[in-house]
């Protein structure tokens, strides 16, 4: 394995040439003019495996650090997860784009699957959750998310100042009083109690704490809340970018996408841009 650093604008793989290595982006961004590949992903996989030449230049979009492997069995344990994910993205992308002309959308799949079940057996969305049983991790995650969003009616008194509110939230997290934490957050979101300029630093801190706690549902809830409270799209983007590796590793990227699409379609369209 080799580690190489490349400056913005450098061509890594030239058009019409073969791909002889597996390239993992440790840092930076690479583009083939149609797609942008970010840190935590591999690029050039199809050409590497098919031994066909690439159709476009692969160029550095942001200064990059690349791990370059000659073959699959050289990839270390901690990078394998990213390799399998990149391979899966390529497989699904190729299958769907080549044959039906568009990528699958998790929110469509869930609702479509639900419709199929409903019409076939009078089912409801709960049926999908039943189907997901058997995977304890995901099952717990969905239950926790359901609690965060739907099942909490606790009444709380919102502090008068943002500083008091922050202290109260920090105290609830230390006590791990999730029920009250959610009630407090929801009260503030619904009433839009504090001005927008307070929120970025606060969510940034909360985001880091949820990652330290390694709590997937809490992390998702914080992203979900931030999409309501932050009015500056750059700030939302910045939050997601800052912790993208964690989100990818935990498979949260598709769930984030799903939540944002459902709850704030306008925002996600602009964030995607």
């Amino acid at each position: 394995m080799k580690i190489n650093k490349y400056k913005k604008g450098k061509v890594i793989i030239e058009k019409d040439s073969p791909v002889k290595k597996l390239f993992y982006i440790q840092q930076g961004k690479i583009t083939d003019t149609k797609n942008i590949f970010s840190s935590g992903s591999f690029f050039g996989l199809v050409s590497f495996f098919t031994e066909l030449n690439v159709l476009n230049d692969y160029r550095v979009l942001e200064n990059a650090v690349l791990y370059e492997y000659d073959c699959m069995d050289e990839i270390p344990e901690d990078i394998l997860t990213f390799f399998i994910k990149s391979l899966s993205d390529m497989y699904v992308g190729f299958s769907y784009m080549s044959l039906v002309g568009r990528m699958p959308d998790p929110s469509f799949i869930i609702s479509n699957y639900n419709d199929q079940k409903s019409s076939a057996a009078g089912g409801s969305k709960k049926d999908l959750l039943k189907e997901l049983k058997g995977d304890g991790d995901l099952d717990d995650f969905i239950k926790a998310l359901d609690f965060y969003i739907n099942d909490n009616d606790e009444e709380v008194e919102i502090p008068q100042t943002f500083s008091d509110f922050k202290d109260e939230i920090n105290k609830l997290l230390v006590e791990f009083n999730v029920s009250r934490f959610i009630a407090m957050m929801r009260g503030v979101i619904v009433k839009k109690s504090f001005p927008a300029e307070n929120w970025y630093a606060f969510f940034s801190e909360l985001f880091e704490r949820s990652i330290t706690l390694n709590d997937r549902a809490l992390t998702l809830y914080i992203i979900y809340s931030s999409s309501f409270m932050l009015t500056d799209l750059e700030q939302i983007n910045s939050l997601l970018r800052k912790h993208w590796e964690f989100l990818r590793f935990n498979g949260l990227n598709s769930w984030i996408d799903y939540v944002l699409r459902v709850h704030n379609n306008k925002l996600i369209v602009q964030v995607d841009d």
Partner: peptide
């Protein structure tokens, strides 16, 4: 089954 890593559910 490689498709399942795309968004944690089977797509094929």
């Amino acid at each position: 089954g490689l498709d399942k890593y795309y968004c944690n559910i089977g797509l094929i």
